[in-house]
Design a protein around this nucleic acid. Structure first.
Lengths: 207, 207
DNA sequence: AGGGTGTCGGACAAGATGTCGCATGATCTC
DNA sequence: GAGATCATGCGACATCTTGTCCGACACCCT
C-alpha cells in the first residue's frame, strides 16, 4: 500500500517523448535552413506531430524551447578548449583542440546559429550565450597571465582585451567558417586559427 | 521656356524630409534600446510622425529600411583600418587605428547592433554585412602575405584563416565591448586589441 | 467505475504585416 | 486663380501568428 502519490512511469515517458519530438522537429527544421526567428510555433508543432496548444503545455514559448535545446548542446562545447587553457596545454596540442571545437560547433551548427540569431533580440538568450563566452575569455586571460609570469608570453600582450578578442573572435570566426565552408576545410582552418591564437597569446615560436 | 518636365524641388525636399524623419525615428528607438526585430512598422511611423502606409510608400519593408540606413553608416567604418592594412601601417599607428574603429563603431552602435541582429535571419542583410567583413579580411590576408614575403611576419601564421579570424574577431569583440563597457574603457581596450592583432599577424616585437 | 492528467482541435482576442481605396493637402503648370 | 497631378493619412480588409481557454477524448491508476 504506497504512502505517496507518484507520477506514473507511462505518463512521464509519454511526456518526455513529446518533448523529444519537439526537439527533433526543431533540429530538422533548422537543418533544413529555416530561421528560428521566422519559424512559427504552429510549424514546429506540425513537424513534431503534436497539437499547437500541447507545445505550450511543454514550453512557455519558443525562446524557452531554444534555451532548453541549447543548454545541453553547448554544455560541453567549450570543455576541451577550456581544459587546454586551464591545464596550460601546449602549441602541439592546440591544432587538435581547435579542430575539435570546430567539429563540435559544426555538429551543432543549426542550433548555435539559432542561438546567436535570437541572442540579438532576446535578453535571456543573449545573457546565456554571453555568459558562456565571457567565462571562456576569463580562463584565457588567466592563462595568458600565467604564461607572462613564467616569461613564456610576450609582455606586449594585454591579457584582458586580448582574451576577449580571442574568445569572441573564435566564436565568430568558427561560426562564419562553419556556415560558409565545407567540412573538408575544417582542418586547415583550425590550424590557421590555432597559429593566430597562439601568437595573439604572445606565444610566437622562436624564429 | 523649359523643354523638360522636372519634379519640383519642393516635392523632392518634402519626400527627402520624410525619409529623414523615418531614419531619425529609427535611430531614436534603437538608441532607446528597442530591438529592431521586435519593432513594429506602426511604431516607427508613429515616432516619425507619418502614416503607416506612407512608410510603405518610401520603403518596401523594414529590412529595406535597415539596409538603407546602414549603407552610409558603415560605408566608411572600415576605411581607416583598411587604409592602415593596405598602406602597410606600423605598430605605432595601430593603437590609434583600432581606437578610431571602436569610436566609430560606438557612434553607430544601435544601428550596427540591428544589422548584426537582423543578419541572423535575413539573407540580404547577412550578405551585405558579410561582404563588408570578408573584403576587410582579404586585405588583411594580403597584408600578412606581404609582411611574410618581406621576412617581417612569422611564417607560422597561415595568412588566410588568421585574416578571417582577425576580421571577424575584431567585429565581434568590438561589438561586445561597445555593448557592455563604457567609452572610458575604449582606449585601453583598443590598445589591447591592437597588441593581439599585431601578434596574430605574426608581428610580435623582438624581446 | 471514478478520478486525475495530458492531448487535440478549435475558438477567441490581440497584434502585426501588406495592400487598397478614398479624402485631403501640397505643388506645379498654364 | 483654376485645374491637374502627386503624395499623404486614415481606415478597412485579409492573412498570419501568438497566447489562452474550453470541451471532448484518451490514458492511467486506484
Amino acid at each position: 500500500m504506497p504512502s505517496v502519490t507518484r507520477r506514473p512511469a507511462g505518463g512521464r515517458d509519454r511526456r518526455d517523448a513529446i518533448a523529444g519530438r519537439v526537439r527533433d522537429a526543431v533540429e530538422r527544421l533548422l537543418v533544413a535552413g529555416e530561421s528560428f526567428t521566422a519559424l512559427p510555433v504552429g510549424r514546429i508543432a506540425d513537424e513534431a506531430g503534436i497539437g499547437r496548444s500541447t507545445f505550450y503545455g511543454h514550453f512557455p514559448d519558443k525562446v524557452a524551447l531554444l534555451i532548453a535545446l541549447t543548454e545541453s548542446a553547448t554544455a560541453t562545447l567549450f570543455d576541451r578548449a577550456a581544459r587546454w587553457v586551464d591545464e596550460d596545454g601546449t602549441r602541439d596540442e592546440l591544432d587538435a583542440v581547435v579542430l575539435h571545437h570546430v567539429t563540435e560547433y559544426r555538429a551543432h551548427a543549426p542550433l548555435l546559429r539559432a542561438v546567436v540569431e535570437v541572442a540579438g533580440y532576446e535578453p535571456d538568450v543573449d545573457g546565456f550565450w554571453q555568459e558562456r563566452i565571457v567565462e571562456f575569455a576569463a580562463s584565457i586571460r588567466r592563462r595568458i597571465e600565467r604564461d607572462q609570469a613564467a616569461g613564456a608570453a610576450h609582455r606586449s600582450i594585454d591579457a584582458g582585451p586580448a582574451a576577449e578578442w580571442i574568445a569572441w573572435g573564435t566564436e565568430r570566426a568558427v561560426s562564419m567558417h562553419v556556415a560558409t565552408r565545407p567540412p573538408a576545410e575544417d582542418a586547415a582552418f583550425a590550424r590557421g586559427v590555432a597559429g593566430a591564437t597562439w601568437a595573439a597569446m604572445g606565444r610566437l615560436p622562436e624564429s
